[in-house]
Design a protein around this nucleic acid. Structure first.
Lengths: 235, 235
DNA sequence: CGGCAATTTGATATCCATCAATCGGTGTGG
DNA sequence: CCACACCGATTGATGGATATCAAATTGCCG
């Protein structure tokens, strides 16, 4: 895990001293179809990547946190829309700078490619989740996913005091629904179901406490997430 | 498109003279979890990439045809299982050879990375399909997907004689179901539904003729597939 | 405290899964 | 060449999970 961070740092310096941008909740950082001129790194907050069909149906593809990349694409245009879930700060870097860095630095390029592989594995995790699991199982996977991110973005290695079992869900029920391929009412009912089975408890709007991690994992059918770090997301 | 093929050829030569392997329908080329020692290129036939959960649920992640890569992974082990759908022939190459080639040849590495991006876009297409569309829509997308592959693998650029509208589905209904997150009975009923709406007609087990491409596209909610080529698939 | 938006809860409808036959093609042996 | 058996696909009947529509509640912010 530490090695992973170090590897990532190999080219994080392209953002050093770059202009930062503050985003309010709901603010859009970049639109699907716009020219892909820049890449961003997240300094704080949470962003959301989504794709909306011609008929308005929206699929949320991922949630991004600190040190995740935004704006990666092989083409001239962004494929997805990225917006802020919570107040966030991002650093900007011309896409050309990243490109040139990768072209001139073999180690950076290999590291970057490993990042892409991880993102791909995440995408396939989501495919499995949507294709094979029911509503409660999808929500269980989602909670473990968020918990995992929290560990990473807060650099928690030891969880003796159980901080990891209190996860915060700043996104709306509808955002969660669009991520899990469900409707918001079904998400609500699935929360209640997990609560009645004593796997979680809730406080206020966004707070969830994991009461039984083993049972939640069993429901999710997951030992743990395979990828040691989720670093990038193309758009 | 031509440029794309040329770009691909940049490192296809690593397979030159390599040992080939014949696969019978249903034969497994590589297992999830096995050591990732080799990569393969498909010379003929069709393969299928899938992932099976601890409880036996299976998600098919993609179907692969000529010149698709098999066995790509960032880790020491394959993540997915790859098996033959039809009788197939693959060429083998030690993974190290590919790695070294990419490390020493910047152009090859960039080309390879673009392949990865395309695979990622495919994966997100599938996410949208599973998360947001109903059974008939998913099947419509699948048919267009197969049709698109056929165009690529047979190098059809002009379709004056309508060959593209006759697509062949060599995989079983269950394979299709596991790809689309449905059950085989639902796939059957969805075929019938498309037939009753006169969007397709069927001959024998595997033959489908697209009777109204515009209407099929409208149902799928797709103008066309964005990626000019689908080249690789990690495992 | 009051009002608004998000969430939850409730009632019902729809779609897909499940279970159970039947069909149909394919291959085999008489 | 035909009869039969087998296996995948289709069709039918029913059940269950999620969507939809509507109302009540909660939390949030002025």
């Amino acid at each position: 895990m530490v090695a992973e961070t170090a590897a990532h740092d190999v080219f994080l310096d392209i953002f050093d001293g770059g202009p930062t941008q503050e985003l309010a909740p709901g603010e859009v950082l970049l639109h699907a179809g716009a020219r892909a001129d820049h890449v961003y790194n997240i300094e704080s907050g949470m962003l959301m990547v989504s794709r909306t069909g011609g008929d308005g149906r929206r699929q949320v593809l991922s949630f991004l946190v600190r040190d995740n990349f935004v704006g990666l694409t092989a083409t001239e245009h962004y494929f997805f829309t990225v917006e802020a879930v919570t107040a966030s700060r991002v650093v900007c870097c011309p896409r050309r700078v990243l490109t040139e860095r990768l072209a001139s630095d073999g180690e950076a390029e290999r590291t970057f490619m490993n990042m892409l592989y991880r993102v791909l594995e995440d995408a396939y995790d989501l495919v499995y989740n949507l294709g094979q699991r029911n509503a409660a199982e999808r929500l269980a996977v989602f909670l473990l996913y968020i918990r995992y991110w929290k560990r990473l973005s807060e650099d928690i290695t030891d969880d003796a005091d159980g901080r990891l079992d209190k996860v915060d869900l700043p996104m709306s029920r509808e955002d969660i629904a669009d991520f899990l391929g469900l409707k918001k009412e079904t998400v609500s009912r699935s929360f209640r179901q997990l609560e009645e089975r004593r796997l979680i408890s809730r406080r206020e709007r966004t707070g969830v406490r994991i009461e039984s991690l083993p049972e939640l994992r069993e429901l999710a059918g997951i030992r743990d997430f395979a990828s040691p770090r989720r670093l990038a997301s193309p758009t």
